[in-house]
Design a protein around this nucleic acid. Structure first.
Lengths: 119, 119
DNA sequence: GTTAGTAGTAAACTAAAGGTTAGTAGTAAC
DNA sequence: GTTACTACTAACCTTTAGTTTACTACTAAC
């Protein structure tokens, strides 16, 4: 007898669609990278562009807007300073991504070790 | 005083590149969905195409090849059966993704609740 | 007065990802 | 003998994502 079916079709579909919902918000090349940088305390536009290698101003700008729409980032204008300084802050809600980011980073590290060991 | 800098620049970059390594293997619209379906016990080509809504045969075929190259999937030919049946099996290595998938699914679920609650 | 930094935007382009349609070759049911 | 299922593949097309270059408007240093 095979003991293949761990989840029913319905459960599997549910599981897939939950991941789908997460990827809708976090998917793409840059969003998670931006969130990590923000959580790490890099908050200003040019600072982000410097630390996130390869991202263009246009893409960074667009991604920040989307993250703001999803409640993960807050755009704070420091009007008292000259020139006006703008900070992007990871919200408390973004902190709920810690486990996701942690799991991905752990796995990525392990995977890299595995790959480099095999050569 | 601000207590902004939680990670140094170097640590942040390391963290980002680990996630980058993970996304290189898992990124794109379909790979995680396929892995979930495989782990859930759906192993045959048309079965996968049925359960993963919207994927085309071409894309499924390509993605499975890439997952095989990365050691996450094994292609097993059941030569004794007529017609020859082909099974795609999630490897033990793919099981190391459980935490990643779990974290993403949890977050996706919570996020959906949050979104639907706000309307 | 030129260079550099602040935070971006606009337009035009390219590359990558994914979708559509059709077709193969074999089996088996109706 | 037509339909349908198996597991795909080829060719072509579209969409989306991302890049490049240039530009704004303001400040400050050299």
């Amino acid at each position: 007898m095979k003991q293949k079916i761990i989840y029913s079709e319905v459960q599997c579909t549910k599981h897939i669609s939950a991941v789908e919902d997460a990827l809708y918000v976090l998917g793409g090349k840059w969003k998670l990278r931006i969130i990590i940088a923000l959580i790490s305390g890099h908050n200003r536009f040019n600072e982000l562009q410097r630390i996130i290698k390869g991202i263009s101003a246009r893409v960074l700008s667009n991604e920040l807007k989307q993250l703001e729409l999803n409640g993960l980032v807050e755009r704070v204008v420091q009007a008292d300073q000259v020139p006006v300084v703008i900070e992007y802050i990871a919200t408390d809600y973004a902190a709920t991504l810690k486990e996701v980011v942690g799991a991905l980073a752990d796995w990525g590290q392990k995977h890299k070790k595995k790959i480099t060991a095999n050569r």
